[in-house]
Amino acid sequence: MGKAIRRVLGLLLSAGALALGAGVAEAHPHVWITASSELIYVPDGSISGVRHAWTFDDMFSTYALQGIETKTQGVYSREELGPLAQTNVESLKEFGFFTFARADGKKEKFQEPVDYFLEVKDGLLILHFTLPLKTPVKPKELALEVFDPSFFVDFKFADKDPVRLVGAPATCQVNFQRPNDGTVNAQALGEQTFTNGDNSNFGAMFANKITVTCP
C-alpha cells in the first residue's frame, strides 16, 4: 500500500492546507485608508488617547456614500453623515479600531470612541474619531500600531504629518515607522503562515508603528 497511500495522503493534506489557507490568500485589501493620527496629552504629561483622521479611498468612499439622502446633491453635511459615522465606529469596535497600544510593553485598552464624525473632502470620505485610553498613562515608551490583522483594510499613513503629538512634554520624541514596501512584506508570507490557517495576524506585517519616548 505504502507508496500510493503516502502520495494520496499528501494530496489530501495539501487540499486541507489549501482549505485552511483560504482566509489568508483571499484577504487582499478592499479598502484603503490614508491615516493621520494625533496622540493627545493631558497637562500632567500623560497620554489620554488617540485622535484619528482616516481618509477612505475613492471606490470605498463612493460605496459608503451610496444612497445617503442629502439636501443638495453631492454635498454632505456632518448631520447627514451622522448615522453612517455611528455605524462606522460601532462596526470598528469589533476590530479594536485597528489601533493597538502598549505602554512600556503593557497592552493598553481603549474606551468607546468620542467626537466621531464624517466629512467629505474632494469626493473622499474622512472619518474622524478619538479613542480615549481606559486610563491615561505616562510611560517612558508608548508603542502604537495601526493595522488590520486580516488585511482587508490597507492602512497607509499620510505623507505629510502622519503622526502628531498634541500637548506633549517637550522632551518627548516621536518615531514613525512605515511598513516596509508592501510587496516585499507580502513575499515574506511564508509557507508556515499559509498552512497554519492563521490569518489572525496576517496584516501585522503591514503595520504602521509609532513609538513615542519620553525620558
Partner: peptide, 15 residues
C-alpha cells in the same frame, strides 16, 4: 473574520 482558528494577541509573535 477575526475569529481565526488560532487567534493570537494583536501583538502576537507571528511577525
Amino acid at each position: 473574520a477575526v475569529h481565526a482558528l488560532m487567534a493570537q494577541t494583536p501583538f502576537g509573535g507571528s511577525r
